[in-house]
Design a protein around this nucleic acid. Structure first.
Lengths: 219, 219
DNA sequence: CGCGTTTCTGAGTATTGAATCAGAAAAACT
DNA sequence: AGTTTTTCTGATTCAATACTCAGAAACGCG
């Protein structure tokens, strides 16, 4: 949970900075940059509005700081996947997707931010693409390309496959408010999560794999 | 394209109102309510800012009016699907998904708005659920339930299936800006659209159907 | 053309929200 | 404790933005 970049030299006011960043990340990812107000963040974080400007120069830097917390999550993801570097591409892909789901449940802000800014375009998307998910997407696309070359995946456009799998996978995570109001369902229970993982891996991904590949993944 | 509620009694200033609504719909769906400014809409629409308030009482009503233009689209969708009412559920579902894709390409604002407000929650989501996509989602869920009962669809949670299919299907439509900056690809070409339809129908949906059902859909 | 109606605009007002700053409160250190 | 540094806040400033209104321009119709 903690970002142990240096030696964590004991922080007193860093505690509040972290709390502010957390609140900011949640709100930014749900509502987008302009819909979020400094006063609102301050209130939820339980500090004065001026405190925000003590810890972060301006709203833009607060946003960046919140996003960089997410980039640590992605770095960890890369690290975990690197150990499977030698497995066949289709197996790596399956592993990556499972890990992607776990991370998305643990850090729902990540998927929301991608959806939000990926629709809007503009400077913030550029920044996110460079600092957050650019390499991840390219790596995933490489995996898809190799899996297709191996004959394990149906030959669809790799970029399309990556985006479609991702958006399909995080749909019910991102749209939790919609699921509540429209279906009266809360998708964030242990059972629901498990079913969702099955749906994505044995539903979506299975539909994209060739027959002999699916057999490999069965239990 | 035109909302022919009454007899379209010839409108002169209605023309500009429609143009404003169009610009507003595009921007609202990309950016969300608060990110959009009345001045911005006015500029793109080529009118003065005060003109917006002549045609629409306030920003909120402009938003509602823009959204109601979309509800006409959904009504048309319902009408087209009603003719297949007697087909097996799985066939209707396949048809509905294909139609859904066509409509999403034609009116990309629809999927964007659902994603945007579905993440944010709040009053606007309530409104949209009631006036725009509530019945559509419930109807789709009913289809999924019947298809599962028929043994044609794997028994996943119907609501999850509906949301996952929808979000997966519109992913590359909504995230066009991301696809451009991150992959350097523009997904909105005739070839790309065709491939996408194949990906969704023969990839995603096929993965959720049982074997005997997929055979029915092969060419 | 004359005259009423519709449509539009420029010049404002009021509100909201980001950013500032002097100084209080708390913490750290000797 | 005393003093220095860090952390926080109330009051305020300044820019942006939704909204108003008196009147101009365009249009329709005899």
């Amino acid at each position: 949970m903690k970002s142990a970049a240096t030696v964590t030299p004991l922080g007193k006011g860093d505690r509040t900075a972290a709390r502010i960043r957390e609140v900011a990340l949640d709100q930014f990812s749900r509502l987008g940059f302009e819909r979020v107000t400094m006063a609102g963040i301050a209130q939820v974080a339980g500090v004065s509005q001026a405190t925000l400007h003590y810890h972060f120069a301006d709203k833009d830097q607060l946003w960046r700081s919140a996003m960089l917390a997410l980039s640590a999550v992605i770095a960890e993801e890369e690290r975990l996947l690197a150990v499977a570097r030698d497995a066949p591409a289709i197996a790596q892909l399956r592993m990556a997707l499972r890990l992607f789901l776990q991370i998305s449940w643990r850090h729902p802000a990540l998927g929301r931010i991608i959806a939000l800014e990926g629709m809007a375009g503009g400077e913030r998307l550029e920044w996110l693409s460079q600092h957050l998910f650019g390499t991840r997407n390219r790596r995933l696309m490489g995996l898809v390309e190799r899996a297709i070359a191996d004959g394990d995946l149906k030959p669809f456009s790799p970029a399309q496959v990556v985006i479609t799998l991702q958006t399909g996978a995080v749909g019910i995570i991102n749209l939790r408010p919609l699921l509540r109001t429209n279906f009266g369902i809360d998708p964030d229970t242990p059972e629901s999560r498990a079913e969702h993982e099955e749906l994505v891996l044995d539903g979506l991904l299975a539909g994209l794999t060739n027959r002999r590949a699916t057999r490999k993944g069965e239990r």
